[in-house]
């Protein structure tokens, strides 16, 4: 029971990270119908920016809460630049191309980003000293003490706040409306005088910022990163997006939480070596049996 509870806490924390990345996949898929293969690597860039920022701020005497906010903002701004540039360079010229072209371009971009970070920052893993320590302990009398760390609370809280802000953005603002219009029919939207290019750019910027927040959390939670983390995290987040129903934003968050839970419970109860297989298996099963996911729209091909 205590063990179960601990896994649940860990799973939800991890799930928040995946969920934030998954939103990027889902939004881009919704608006231009492509799988942004490089999104996992954008997340990785976010984690690196965060790492660098943390190291620099550690030299100053700024208070921790302010550091946290600053790091989040810095990571979001710089990573958003990456998302924006990737879209402009690798996807925008291919909007009218044959269907596999953007996917292959994205694959190339992913390879570029990984190796660029490896070249610039080195191939060795990077360790960050814990930024937030301590937490609440429960069931102190039993054999297994359940810990809910402050960091986990921080991660879940930030996720909730971001989700709230983001939902407002999508449902209440002109940008959100433009986005939804583009999803329906890009040509018509352009004819209505909405700047489609800018809307798509904004989608990439928002998606990348959310991924960078996930990167900040990842580097704080695990304390180790390398240039390769984006690959696995990307696939898992993509699985989350599909699980929730690709194109659906609440679905992405829900899917993220589920994937986080599946992964932690699998490693907690079954086998830690094969924990990545858990995510892959979920992906395959979901795609084969529930290709529209939980909250996705049914997808009857119009003939």
């Amino acid at each position: 029971m205590e063990y179960f509870l601990q896994q649940l806490i860990n799973g939800l924390t991890l799930g928040s990270v995946y969920g934030l990345i998954a939103i990027g996949y889902t939004m881009v898929y919704g608006i231009i119908g492509m799988i942004n293969f490089a999104h996992g690597d954008i997340f990785m860039v976010g984690a690196f920016v965060a790492l660098i920022a943390f190291i620099l701020f550690a030299l100053t005497s700024i208070a921790l809460p302010i550091i946290l906010i600053l790091v989040l903002l810095i990571a979001m701004v710089f990573t958003a630049c990456y998302g924006w540039t990737v879209e402009k360079l690798a996807y925008k010229p291919l909007r009218k191309s044959f269907r596999l072209a953007p996917l292959i371009s994205a694959l190339g971009m992913s390879i570029v980003l990984q190796n660029y970070v490896q070249a610039a920052q080195g191939a060795r893993i990077k360790t960050l000293q814990p930024v937030i320590q301590g937490g609440f302990n429960f069931f102190k009398e039993s054999d297994f003490v359940v810990t809910l760390s402050y960091l986990q609370i921080f991660i879940v809280l930030v996720t909730i706040v971001l989700m709230a802000v983001f939902t407002l953005l999508i449902t209440r603002t002109a940008l959100g409306r433009a986005q939804r219009a583009c999803e329906q029919d890009r040509t018509m939207t352009a004819l209505m005088g909405i700047n489609v290019d800018r809307t798509i750019s904004m989608t990439f910027i928002i998606g990348s910022s959310l991924a960078s927040v996930a990167g900040v959390m990842f580097v704080m939670y695990y304390g180790v990163i390398d240039f390769y983390i984006g690959f696995l995290a990307g696939i898992k987040a993509f699985t989350a997006a599909v699980l929730g129903g690709i194109g659906s934003i609440p679905g992405a968050m829900l899917g993220g939480l589920l994937i986080g839970l599946i992964e932690t419970f699998w490693s907690g109860y079954i086998s830690i070596e094969y924990k990545d297989i858990a995510a892959f298996t979920t992906l395959v099963i979901v795609l084969i049996f529930f290709p529209t996911g939980f909250l996705g729209k049914p997808d009857i091909e119009k003939v």
């Binding site: 191309s97 292959i104 694959l107 190339g108 971009m109 992913s110 570029v112 190796n115 490896q118 070249a119």
Partner: peptide
């Protein structure tokens, strides 16, 4: 790692300029 950057970059460039 530079060679893989060049490789990935080539993939993107060829898709952009000669997608077929």
């Amino acid at each position: 790692s530079y060679r893989m950057i060049a490789f990935g970059g080539a993939m993107v460039l060829i898709m952009v300029f000669r997608p077929k």
